[in-house]
Design a protein around this nucleic acid. Structure first.
Length: 282
DNA sequence: CTTTTTCCCTGGACGC
DNA sequence: TGCGTCCAGGGAAAAA
């Protein structure tokens, strides 16, 4: 499941291979990849573009071309990139191939075909992102106050609020669970009712979890590998995700799994206890 | 407006 | 072995 750390790892791995290169030929094999646009037409438009930079916004990869156009890629569940020479092409799940001007291929794979490619004009990028993606949690400007402002007045569970990309760009199910465990906050607490100290802990926790994820090159659960084919090692750091019934690393209480925000949600019922109504209002 | 639910998609795990 | 069923979940869209 590519979340911020996985997407950032992919970006870093791909960057040296593609920046400065020209797309000699593009082939898109999945009719759904560029919906609602015709994949053959998108492929034609990609041909000849020279790549000026590879950026990340939340879970989006943005391939910036010298022309100013941008290819906005979302990997969703199983999208992934490989570079040729390190892995045989024409795998059963190869959905697109970009042939570069140095003869190498950038291969896009996506088992479940949830991923999307959207080619946008220069003036379309920011408006598109603005209504979908909030602040980058690892930027210096993302302070506790930033997080607090995004959560203020919200009655949705904190788990659901964290998964909202406008709250924390790039947050996903795994890192949300890990961050809430680190902050010792119950996933179903109403987001707007978190105390000042809890917000401080959560701010620190989610940044720590995401930074650790990047340092470990992401988490490999099934499909995900870096563009070099390396497995991530973040799964070895999981404290709660996928550990239902196992002892909490902090207190030994068995980890519980519930349904939160429509997603599997793992937490320690002792460390992350729901506060026993401290509220004094009747 | 906010929040919740449904849907898309496939392969792996599991029960019989 | 093989078949049916369930599950994983990011985000768009629909429903509440």
């Amino acid at each position: 499941v590519p979340e911020l750390p996985e997407v950032e790892t992919i970006r870093r791995g791909l960057e040296p291979f593609v920046v400065g290169r020209r797309i000699e030929r593009a082939a898109i094999h999945d009719a759904r990849l560029t919906r609602p646009f015709d994949p053959a037409e998108v492929a034609r438009q990609l041909q000849g573009e020279r790549i000026a930079g590879l950026e990340r916004r939340g879970k989006y990869l943005a391939v910036r071309f010298e022309s100013g156009r941008v290819l906005l890629i979302h990997l969703r569940m199983t999208g992934n990139f490989r570079v040729s020479g390190r892995d045989p092409p024409d795998g059963p799940h190869d959905r697109a191939v970009l042939r570069l001007d140095n003869g190498s291929d950038v291969i896009y794979r996506d088992v479940r075909r949830f991923g999307t490619w959207l080619l946008v004009e220069p003036d379309e990028l920011e408006p598109y992102l603005a209504e979908r993606v909030g602040e980058e949690p690892l930027d210096d400007v993302f302070r506790t106050a930033t997080l607090a402002a995004r959560l203020a007045g919200r009655r949705a569970p904190i788990k659901a609020a964290l998964l909202d990309q406008r709250t924390v760009a790039g947050m996903g199910n795994i890192y949300a669970d890990e961050a809430l465990w680190r902050a010792r906050i119950h996933p179903l607490r109403p987001a707007g009712e978190l105390e000042r100290d809890e917000l401080r802990r959560l701010h620190r926790a989610l940044r720590d979890a995401l930074r650790t994820g990047i340092a470990r090159q992401g988490a490999t659960l099934s499909n995900y590998v870096t563009p070099d084919g390396e497995r991530g090692r973040m799964q070895e750091e999981f404290k709660v995700y996928g550990r239902e019934g196992e002892p909490c690393p902090r207190c030994g209480t068995p980890i519980e799994k519930i349904r939160g925000a429509g997603r599997g949600t793992h937490y320690c019922p002792n460390c992350q206890a729901f506060p026993t109504s401290v509220r004094s209002e009747a």
